[in-house]
């Protein structure tokens, strides 16, 4: 239910393929509040990535609504301040939603600095010098201050993902979406990425994280969602989910991963 601090309200979100034969998302209803660190867990194919990618319309849902800052972004047309129906500008909403991908998706033809400053310069019309200064500060914070002029191919997976996180932060988003950010990393690099995410959470950033890192979910998350077969089966604090699981699917899942 919409609280004052609610940032994203998802209502009965559906994503069907083949006229409903495949239900990737089957009626998800959840509120993301400001400052939440919401961790989504579940077996593969449960729809958790689809759910996350629907939040900024990387996937177009087939039903339900997503209210972000009070605007239903699943609609083609939305009312403006005067109450007139205008075309929804999804780019504007995406600027406020940072996204971090499993495979980093850095731009290989640009240096790290260029990767980070492109969007602020082109979208926010930030002066180049200011954008570069900001980028360097962020890079320093994640321990990559000396790699600004490097190309993505010269970085390790963990370094790439840290760059991807600060690249998204350059746009000063209201919420950060993480789509399995550590799944493509070598095990020894998982920690450095999770550390950055943990720091981000402690600073109060609203985060939605799809992950298989149960340790992170328990330690950093304040809410944990368990999804299976496109449905939200259980939701609660990390203690509820990990120590007192109710749904048999969750119990089965936890017995396999813990």
């Amino acid at each position: 239910m919409a609280t004052r601090d609610s940032l994203i309200q998802v209502t009965d979100l559906k994503k069907y393929y083949n006229k409903g034969a495949i239900k990737a998302l089957d009626g998800i209803t959840v509120d993301v509040n400001k400052g939440d660190v919401m961790v989504v867990i579940g077996p593969s194919g449960s729809g958790k990535s689809t759910f996350l990618r629907s939040l900024n319309l990387m996937e177009m849902p087939t039903g339900g609504s997503i209210l972000f800052d009070g605007v239903d972004i699943t609609k083609k047309k939305v009312p403006n301040e005067q109450g007139k129906l205008v075309k929804l500008d999804i780019d504007k909403h995406r600027q406020k939603m940072g996204m971090v991908f499993q495979h980093f998706n850095l731009f290989p033809h640009m240096t790290i600095l260029e990767n980070m400053t492109l969007a602020p310069i082109k979208v926010h019309h930030m002066p180049k010098a200011e954008a570069e200064k900001k980028a360097l500060e962020l890079l320093k914070r994640v321990g990559l201050g000396d790699r600004a002029e490097a190309y993505p191919i010269q970085l390790s997976g963990g370094q790439k993902q840290r760059v991807a996180i600060v690249r998204a932060l350059m746009m000063e988003p209201e919420v950060m979406l993480f789509d399995e950010p550590t799944s493509a990393l070598d095990p020894e690099m998982v920690g450095e990425v999770l550390d950055v995410m943990k720091e981000l959470a402690q600073e109060g950033m609203t985060m939605v994280v799809v992950t298989h890192e149960m340790g992170f979910a328990r330690e950093v998350g304040n809410r944990v969602l368990f999804m299976a077969d496109g449905k939200l089966l259980e939701e609660g604090t990390p203690e509820d989910i990990f120590d007192h699981p109710h749904h048999p699917r969750l119990q089965e899942f936890l017995s396999k991963v813990l």
Binding site: R94, M99, N105, F107, H109, M171
Partner: peptide, 24 residues
Amino acid sequence: GQTEASRSLGLTQGQTMRYIILPQ
């Protein structure tokens, strides 16, 4: 993923084509 990353940063379709896709 290149398009997705670019669009997730708020760049438009045209900007994505010009700065991300075409150079590559």
